[in-house]
Amino acid sequence: MSTSTTTAGTDGRPAAAGSRRRSRRGAAEARAGVLLALPFVLLFAVFTAWPVLQSMFMSFTDMRISDIRTPFAVDFVGLENYRTAFADPVFRRAALNTGVFVLLGVPLTITAGLAAALALNTGVGRLRAVYRVGFYSPVITSIVAVAVVWRFLLQPGTGLVNTVLGWVGIDGPHWLGDQRTALLSLVVMAVWRNFGTSMIIFLAGLQAVDPGLHEAAALDGAGRWRRFVSITLPSIRPTMLFVLVTTSIGYLQFFEEPFVMTNGGPLNATVSASMYTYNQFGFGNYGVAGAMAYLTFLVIGLVTLVQFRLMREK
């Protein structure tokens, strides 16, 4: 991510003022800074920073739901919870499902978002705003409402999708009930739900592409595809990195879709790492759930690091 602004120097103030006056002003400035920061920082310490630390602590203990009132009267078990997680075949299946979801979903989401942004950028006239709002509308929709509608659309017998497929002679499967199509259905739904976000960000990023370069290349006989690869893509590299990283982070935490659509089924075909972590919390296994959450965090950190390395400006 690059920012269009630069940090304003805090040392740029006139040096002519007397040092006493300056230090008095400095003290007033520091006091104001602390006062303005304090409300956020206090709430943040209580509701975010502290839970992050406690979660780490929890993942090394045998904490269960019965310890909820006395979260510190628990025993240390070292890496036992992490061993439990790795040894659990359902967790491994969940990790695999999450991997498949990320590997399919991230490229599809980015491609759809970029394609939509490019199309809107070629001068589509007055309908531009309509497309923009239309393509973004799934993003702002409650997942619960999405689930209600999509479950209805994907129904095996009376659903709209299979009805339409029937018109062209295809006998549509039981999308969410079949192990072979359930995860795929969720990938498609997630792409539908998320490509609008990447579209908006690509639209902003495409402003950085110099039209002069395109004109020059076109005069030299470069085709549309050639110009896209050699001019547009390199120009939007920072945007691409941002979209790649944020989409991946989101998809690695893949949770809501299986939670509301399939509850992880059929036969764990759609259970995700985050969803299984949540289930452990539901079973009262707080220590194991903490370990699983930290494993996901670790993977997110690693993937982000790798993406930054690969996409670094050469």
Binding site: S55, M58, F255, A289, T296, T304
Partner: peptide, 15 residues
């Protein structure tokens, strides 16, 4: 904390 998944803080927040 931007990169920390929501589930990491979920249980302690609930507690």
């Amino acid at each position: 904390c931007l990169m920390i998944p929501g589930l990491v803080t979920f249980i302690p927040q609930y507690v």
